[in-house]
Computed example of a mutant assay.
Amino acid sequence: METSMSGTDGGEERRGRARFAGLHLTLAARLKAYLFTGILVTAPISITLYLAWLVVDGVDNLVDSLLPAPYHPDQLLPFTLPGLGLLLLLIFLILVGMVSAGVVGNLLVRLGEALVGRMPVLRGIYSAVKQVFETVLAQKSDAFREVVLVEFPRPGAWAIAFVTGGTKGDLQQALGGGDWVNVFVPTTPNPTSGYLMFVPRDQVKPLAMSVEDGLKMVVSGGLVGPEEATIKAP
Rank of each mutant, 00 (worst) to 15 (best):
M1S: 15
E2I: 02
M5A: 14
S6W: 08
G7M: 11
T8E: 13
D9S: 13
E12F: 15
E12A: 09
E13T: 14
R14V: 15
G16L: 10
R17C: 07
R19H: 09
L23K: 12
H24Q: 06
H24Y: 05
L25Y: 06
A28F: 04
A28P: 02
A29E: 10
R30K: 09
L31V: 15
A33F: 12
A33P: 06
A33W: 01
A33V: 11
L35H: 15
T37C: 10
G38W: 10
G38E: 08
I39R: 07
L40C: 15
V41H: 08
T42E: 01
A43C: 13
P44L: 00
P44E: 06
I45A: 14
S46W: 14
L49C: 15
Y50S: 14
A52S: 01
V55E: 13
V56E: 13
D57T: 07
G58A: 01
G58Q: 05
N61K: 14
V63W: 05
S65K: 04
Y71R: 00
L77S: 04
F79H: 06
T80R: 14
G83N: 00
G85L: 03
L87I: 05
L88Q: 08
L88A: 05
I91M: 09
F92P: 01
V96E: 13
G97I: 00
G97F: 03
S100C: 03
A101W: 09
V103D: 08
V103T: 11
G105E: 01
N106S: 12
L107T: 11
L107Q: 13
R110M: 02
G112I: 06
G112D: 02
A114P: 00
V116K: 02
V116L: 12
G117A: 13
R118G: 11
P120T: 10
I125Y: 05
I125M: 09
S127G: 13
V129F: 04
F133A: 11
F133V: 11
E134K: 08
A138E: 14
Q139E: 11
Q139L: 10
S141H: 13
D142T: 12
D142S: 10
F144V: 08
E146D: 14
L149T: 07
V150M: 05
V150D: 01
V150Q: 02
F152D: 07
F152Y: 15
P153C: 01
W158E: 10
I160D: 00
A161R: 05
A161Y: 04
G165M: 03
G166P: 08
D170H: 08
G177F: 02
G177L: 11
G178D: 05
N182E: 12
G194R: 01
Y195S: 06
F198D: 07
V199S: 04
P200G: 08
P200Y: 01
V204R: 03
V204S: 00
K205F: 10
P206L: 03
V211C: 10
K216H: 02
V218Q: 06
G221K: 00
G222R: 09
V224N: 05
P226Y: 04
A229P: 13
T230D: 06
P234V: 11
